[in-house]
Design a protein around this nucleic acid. Structure first.
Lengths: 223, 223
DNA sequence: TGTACATCAGTGAACGCGCGTTCACTGATGTAC
DNA sequence: TGTACATCAGTGAACGCGCGTTCACTGATGTAC
């Protein structure tokens, strides 16, 4: 509804071709990597001449930007939906893992080796904050609200949480307590640590089950 | 000593040019990324014709392989030297971080997004095991040797350590106890999680100090 | 020590390729009267 | 409903570029007698 109601046939056709182009782009990234993404190759795969794609994307960079945007959007929506259905932090972890395993290249496009000279547009950081907010809410639910009296004690026991509390701009106006900020950062880095090594194939030689490593790390993380 | 004594002038010259090529290669990777590495560009930078480099490397792939090998060797030696000087696991963590920060692209070449279609040669996995052995020794030193009586109890308390014990081929013949295996895996994934996100610039928007996050994660890891 | 020979580093031309991107164009699809 | 016009998707040729790699070659460096 909304847009699709007022869309002219031409607009709908355009949107359809755009998604088709992006689908072929993902396919090509999976085969040859993001840095090898080529408009001409996509065009050939679609049975169309190279310049035709310039009707739909201003150039290669805009296509990549759009792919990154879509990927962030997909992750934010997936996590958001899970949270809306009542998933706790542990549930979000498994949703994240499922999302990453479903398309490793998509995960790496967001969190892998940065493409030199490429700068993500501003709105992706907005989606990134949205993801962080979902995480923070789940973290706050696990952290007991500390009475005022404990504040001083916590400051010495959890110096990093206190440090984060002083630099909480990245959390927006989310009312998560310091301990939740810390938990969210640990969640992010640890899950990324296991996932990225797993997806990059660094565990393939070893014979253990990555699933269990993930579970163990998650278990150690939860309070 | 050793090789350099018996090396003819021509052999020494060859070795020197090879390292010079590799230096320019690293420089180029830092500028444009590993996937943009180009023999012709390196040659131009060295003020030499393109085909000249084929005297020193069979082709682009061999050059990349050599860079990867050197990077693994450098990390293994750096950690090994620190361990030999008595560094504990915490010390190794800081050495690892220093090594990664000194040259982020080198770190990503080893642990970043895999280059599609590229397969690392066998001897790099040997160096990889060497690194793991250094880690395992440091981990074993932190884990109390458990008397036989505790074995059954541990099995239920630490299911992943037990799982690793059953699949410890990756640890070679290192005599580390199960808890040390688990600690080493956690060390690897967690340090990588913080480091790779930091090096990829995912913390730049947030204003906190990555140093403190690293310290906090390390602190939470140590028994 | 001096000369004849072998080795080998580096050159320049060439091959075939694919890339991103522009441009003037054709032909089909939609729109307005 | 039918015709005149505007919009726009897609084409094919072209530009300039850089890539990896091969090949026959020149000229300098080392080696053997």
């Amino acid at each position: 509804m909304g847009k699709s109601d007022t869309a002219t046939p031409r607009e709908r056709y355009r949107a359809q071709v755009r998604t088709e182009i992006k689908e072929h782009a993902w396919q090509q990234i999976a085969t040859a990597g993001a840095s090898a993404l080529s408009l001409n190759a996509i065009a050939k795969q679609m049975g169309v001449s190279g310049p035709a794609l310039y009707r739909y994307f201003a150039g290669r960079d805009e296509l990549i930007t759009e792919l990154i945007r879509d990927a962030y959007r997909s992750l934010a929506d997936t996590l958001g939906a899970a949270a809306a259905e009542g998933a706790d932090l542990s549930g979000l972890a498994h949703v994240l893992r499922g999302w990453a395993l479903a398309d490793p290249h998509r995960y790496f496009l967001l969190y892998g080796t940065p493409v030199p000279g490429y700068h993500a547009p501003d709105d992706t950081t907005a989606i990134s904050s949205e993801i962080m907010a979902t995480l923070l809410t789940a973290c706050a639910a696990l952290v007991p609200e500390a009475p005022e009296a404990q504040a001083a004690q916590e400051a010495t026991e959890a110096p990093f949480a206190t440090h984060l509390e002083k630099h909480r701009a990245w959390a927006g106006d989310h009312p998560a307590p310091p301990a939740a900020l810390h938990l969210a950062m640990s969640f992010w880095t640890r899950m990324h640590g296991v996932l990225s090594l797993e997806l990059a194939g660094h565990f393939t030689g070893m014979r253990f089950d990555p699933d269990r490593l993930f579970a163990a790390e998650l278990d150690a993380l939860l309070p």
